[in-house]
Write a protein that binds this DNA or RNA. Structure first.
Length: 111
RNA sequence: CAAGUCGGCCAGGCGGUCGCGUCCCCUCCUUUCAUCCCCCCAGUGGGGGAAAGAGGGGGGCGAGGAAAGUCCGGGCUCCACAGGGCACGGUGCUGGAUAACAUCCAGGCGGGGUGACCCGACGGAAAAGGGCCACAGAAAAGCAGACCGCCCCCUCCCGCUGGGGAGGGGGUAAGGGUGAAAAGGUGGUGUAAGAGACCACCGGCGUCCGUGGUGACACGGGCGGCCAGGCAACCCCCACCGGGAGCAAGGCCAAGCAGGAGCGAGGGGCGGCCCGUCCCAUUCGAGCUCCGGGUAGGCCGCUAGAGACGGCGGGCAACCGCCGUCCCAGAUAGAUGACCGCCCACGACAGAACCCGGCUUAUCGGCCGACUUGGACG
RNA sequence: GCCCACGUAGCUCAGCCGGUAGAGCACACCCUUGGUAAGGGUGUGGCCAUGGGUUCAAUUCCCAUCGUGGGCU
């Protein structure tokens, strides 16, 4: 994904965690908050609980790839954090995409 | 052919579609004249380009042998200089390599294996000194030690020629037993019984000499006293080495805030002490403690280096010198991914974060070379 | 990324210079009581995180590994 639409500032991420609503799926968690802009920004994260650097890189890449493919279908004007859960390491990309799509529908962010 | 030893290399491949980071080029647009260059004007103003940013297109490059653990050693940065002594810490056979090392190479010594070969924190424990050696055992470390046994003497009892038993005194380290360890081994002389008490040989120790080697050490010979326990990964002694912190080092720019109370004559550079030295204080107050407030942005450091590859030369080797060619990640919530097809042995451990040299640990397998042992055939 | 500290009974911790591991709480049983709590007594429970090394002997000394917690912008 382009860096322009990524959530990169620590202060922005903190705001999402503090003010955002969350939706859970066995593979990932989605946290979102309106940002008042005309574009949506996405951040990804994977905690140390998931494993070593290779496992965490794998988890983040899967989340980024799913978000890239679904980005045109996401409502504008949101800051979104995607948090990886351990089960994500056992699946392939299309399943992550499916999980993210269902979360977006439940959160009312898909159009 | 089987079993094994040592060393080196590789770390799925190819094609297609979409995607990411960085650098460069082209194109188009925007911003500003603060900086640089050019032009116009002479009203210190105007314009163009460079520059910076956004979009589009193209090209180059883009994780590892361990990138890991952070266990050593350096470079680099800051602490005024990195100075002296003590303390503390580290290393520990010899010679060499190296920027340096606890690493590497060669050799010595000791141990293991039929062998190729592998393993070793490998200075000093008798004249520097202190300490410890539990339990068991009679005795456990500078005059070692008599429990059983063995031997001699005395008294008593049984039997009464020879013998046996009990008690006491003494000798004895050959035998038994305890222990991780009991103060050389074998044979002899000797003796009441014994003993390095004495003798021969062997082992080991010390010392002197000779030969070889840079040296550790090896070999040979003479002399000595008969023999000297273990632990320095306990303190310690000897030799050598080490100033401290770490790229979140350190420097620059921008933004932002609010100070107050107490202690106070010394404080800091510096982790401990002393010396030396420098800086700030003792007037208006250095510094310390407590309460409260602000920031969480950008740029540099940041990758061309003890660099990689090839050749030649020196050296047993580690490695070094010279020449030629090449540029090989620099991210900052952190870039290598997703999907499809084909092939094969169906893919392990695992992701740079300032950079190198090592060590250690994890790891599916595959390939190549040298060598050892055993068997069969010619 | 860098720098530290700590792993001992179910829990919280002792164990100084190596000699065979304890305390408190908890648990089980007994005494006390009409019964319980408290109190007293007895007992159970440990690969001393893991693997090597030094030593006659290691929880202790040394090395490596694994895990947990903390600090530095």
């Amino acid at each position: 994904m382009e860096r322009r639409v990524r959530l990169r500032r620590a202060s922005h991420i903190r705001q999402v965690y503090e003010d955002g609503r969350s939706w859970k799926h066995p593979l990932l968690i989605l946290i979102a908050r309106p940002n008042g802009l005309d574009l949506t920004r996405v951040g990804v994260t994977a905690s140390r609980r998931l494993g070593g650097a290779v496992a965490r890189n794998r988890a983040r890449r899967l989340l980024r790839e799913a978000a890239r493919l679904l980005y045109p279908q996401i409502e504008k004007g949101w800051d979104v954090m995607l948090v990886a859960r351990a089960a994500i390491l056992t699946v392939k990309e299309p399943q992550v995409e499916e999980g993210l799509a269902s979360l977006l529908k439940r959160a009312g962010l898909s159009r």
